[in-house]
């Protein structure tokens, strides 16, 4: 990409650069160079989102249509990724499955961030609530998250919405703690103390000073939650306590195919690859965002 200027005519011979010529890049390339993980992660994730949105137009068939007479076919011209135990087209199921995984990931990230943010702000600002809420959060965090989600799913039954709730409940305390920590450290800052002293309303303080400062860590945290929620959805479905089996999700396809992984590995293989790539993409994105948005955090992990 380097552009060297060849002089057409010369009054004097061009001096050799003391420093090597500065490479000029487009802004895009510069961004990629500075934040390669964001670029790669974002690109892969974008691809998955496109696949999810345009699944019906990508040469798919009805992902729930049965054909028991043509079951467990290896990948071929008709079934690109093969067919499962009920003769459903795995290619179509995997593409449509992207919708569920991404939806669960994004929704859990959004729900737990919002609820966690609210709880964290309340706890950080309202002294009476702080102890109670944080004890409850501590209690919730003491229950290993998958166990909590499994117990919840057993309670409220299988549906995508319930998967989102179950996983969110386990993630909320983490966000709440993070936010509370930020709030407490910000409260000690001189400018916040000044604002409090000058009688600015609590709401205004939160809006002006606190929120903007919590945004960066929350966004970073939300990306990681998104990734772990997608894995949790797959795990729940794998155990049989996740998305209802009528909905094609990567977890479900793998759960159904796992009985046959020795003989028909392709049933598990394709959703596993898609899931891993997507989670990897989100993780890379998270890493990159952390480095870019919050250099202090970057040192931590």
């Amino acid at each position: 990409m380097s552009v060297s200027i060849e002089p057409g005519f010369a009054a004097a011979p061009v001096l050799r650069d003391v420093l090597p010529p500065r490479r000029e890049r487009g802004r895009v390339m510069l961004f990629i160079y500075r934040h390669p993980t964001i670029a790669v992660g974002g690109l892969l994730l974008g691809l998955m989102v496109l696949i999810a949105i345009f699944a019906p137009f990508l040469h798919t068939v009805d992902p729930t249509a049965l054909a028991p007479a043509r079951r467990t076919r290896a990948p071929n011209a008709q079934y690109w990724f093969g067919s499962d135990m009920l003769g459903r087209d795995i290619y179509s199921r995997v593409l449509y499955g992207a919708r569920v995984s991404l939806l669960v990931g994004f929704l859990v990230a959004a729900v737990s961030s919002l609820v966690g943010l609210t709880i964290g702000l309340c706890a950080g600002f309202i002294r009476i609530l702080d102890t109670v809420m944080m004890r409850v959060m501590d209690g919730l965090m003491s229950i290993p998250s998958i166990l909590l989600a499994i117990a919840f799913m057993a309670l409220i039954g299988a549906s995508v919405q319930n998967v989102v709730i179950a996983i969110s409940v386990a993630e909320i305390p983490r966000v709440a703690r993070l936010v509370r920590g930020v709030v407490l450290s910000l409260r000690e800052q001189a400018y916040v103390e000044a604002a409090i002293a000058s009688g600015t309303s609590t709401f205004k303080i939160i809006w002006r000073h606190i929120l903007p400062n919590t945004l960066a860590p929350i966004i970073v945290q939300a990306t990681f939650i998104c990734a772990s929620a997608m894995l949790a959805e797959a795990t729940l479905s794998f155990i049989g306590a996740g998305t209802p089996p009528t909905t094609p999700s990567w977890g479900n396809i793998m759960a159904e195919g796992r009985a046959l992984w020795q003989v028909k590995p392709f049933i598990v293989f394709f959703p596993a690859v898609f899931l891993s790539i997507t989670v990897l993409a989100v993780n890379l994105l998270g890493d990159g965002l952390r480095d870019a948005l919050d250099p202090r955090l970057a040192k931590r992990i």
Binding site: T64, A65, L66, P68, L86, A158, P244, P245, T246
Partner: peptide, 23 residues
């Protein structure tokens, strides 16, 4: 599970309104 999946498909084919309760 296999029986239930086939039934859901069958009932849909003959125009019945099915609620598949996974449990």
């Amino acid at each position: 599970k296999a029986e239930g999946d086939v039934t859901a498909d069958l009932l849909a084919k003959i125009g019945m309104n099915v609620n598949y309760v996974a449990t």
